[in-house]
Design a protein around this nucleic acid. Structure first.
Lengths: 226, 226
DNA sequence: GAATGTATACTACCATACAAGTATACTAAT
DNA sequence: ATTAGTATACTTGTATGGTAGTATACATTC
């Protein structure tokens, strides 16, 4: 685990631990099913059990941890049913958002999208998939923010914790980033052309890709799934 | 406040307190802006501060409480921006869900919807608006559950904490329930007729109503809003 | 009278101790 | 060798005490 405290914003120890664990879980550095304990974490971070417990409560609320009283606490397994519903939520919220973006996105965000897309191309050439993942996230976040729906994006982020672990797994596999990039380009063009029908259609295709791969990933990493 | 412990399922004190506070906040029995403290609640419920704290952490995560370290903890004010985004999320997720329901709802749920609607009519006659509110919730939940998207409904519920307080406020005002009931009837008919276009259109109208009233409510109860 | 300093009574945060339930390894009896 | 029983080392849940930061009332100073 990547354990280092005292550097992040959000002044309480509880929030530090919360963010630290969250990132380690989402990035699969703490694998699904892993057994952790309050005592273990508190010893490793040299703090008391109390803030660790409170971080655990928050993570359990997001279904990233499962707490079994008197037994133990485990990093939650990936639930494909939950993944599909998250994908459903994301698809429909982002389609609605991109349609809205066609009529009222601000020029600043448009510029940011252009710049982002160029950087994405560089990353594909360098095969820097980790950075590409972050840029992918930013691309979608910027669209939402650009038309005044930043909270919609944070809801998507919250419900997508399981889906995101799938996407990280996919990074390991050889994945067709060219298609992704092409779709991003088409989405941006549609927004610029204010073509709502096209934006909706491309976004739908873009966010429907995932489905078929899920079962393959489950076969490749069976111990990570419920 | 309606404080009584030791009766609910969910065996931990923490969960009891969490649910108790959540209901009191959502129903406006604890008014927005109210200043509460760990010590206050723990004394009133005759438990220690620890489970109260942990319940506070969960409620803060849902933005029902705002915790200011060393200052105090307050029931969150209603944020109209957040309400509108919640409405946006609800509208688009429910439209997608009802369209799906047109092709794959199970017959059991259909029956439940029929029964629910009849009970709603009785409640309108009796002017039992509290029960009507619950039936309204059930109606929408049943549609989601009936086509295998129950988690979508729980996401809607989670994001809608602010929106729900608006809806409760609206109960006090004299509200046109006949329109609501008529729309529910049309939605159910559309599902039965498998008319996706009609279902989508009526659901959109149904969930767009709220917008105009929000500012009026803010004028009537200014101290409840941010 | 207005501004500043101080004592006091709050607050949430964190550390620690104990309680209660569970899993496991070991011992002892058959 | 197998099984039953027990001791022990875990786990999370809860209670409690001390710490540090904040608001407020009051006294002091200008």
């Amino acid at each position: 685990m990547n354990f280092e405290l005292n550097k992040r914003p959000g002044n309480s120890i509880r929030d530090h631990i919360y963010q630290l664990l969250r990132e380690n879980i989402m990035s699969l550095q703490m694998r699904p099913g892993l057994n952790i304990s309050e005592k273990d974490i508190s010893a490793r971070l040299e703090v008391s059990r109390t803030p660790v417990r409170e971080a655990f409560v928050k993570l359990a609320q997001e279904e990233l941890l499962e707490i079994y009283p008197q037994k133990g606490t485990f990093v939650s397994l990936i639930d494909l049913g939950q993944v599909e519903e998250a994908r459903f939520i994301r698809e429909h919220l982002e389609r609605a958002t991109v349609v809205l973006a066609c009529e009222k996105i601000d020029s600043e965000s448009l510029l940011e999208l252009e710049s982002n897309l160029l950087t994405q191309q560089l990353c594909v050439q360098d095969k820097n998939y980790t950075k590409l993942f972050a840029l992918d996230e930013d691309f979608h976040a910027t669209i939402a923010r650009g038309c005044g729906k930043s909270r919609v994006w944070s809801v998507i982020q919250q419900t997508n914790v399981h889906l995101n672990r799938i996407r990280i797994l996919r990074l390991a596999a050889n994945y067709n980033w060219d298609t992704i990039l092409q779709q991003h380009r088409e989405i941006l063009n549609a927004i610029k052309e204010k073509d709502q029908e096209k934006a909706d259609r491309v976004m739908k295709e873009h966010l429907t890709l995932v489905i078929s791969e899920q079962e393959d990933l489950k076969k490749a990493y069976p111990e990570y799934f419920k």
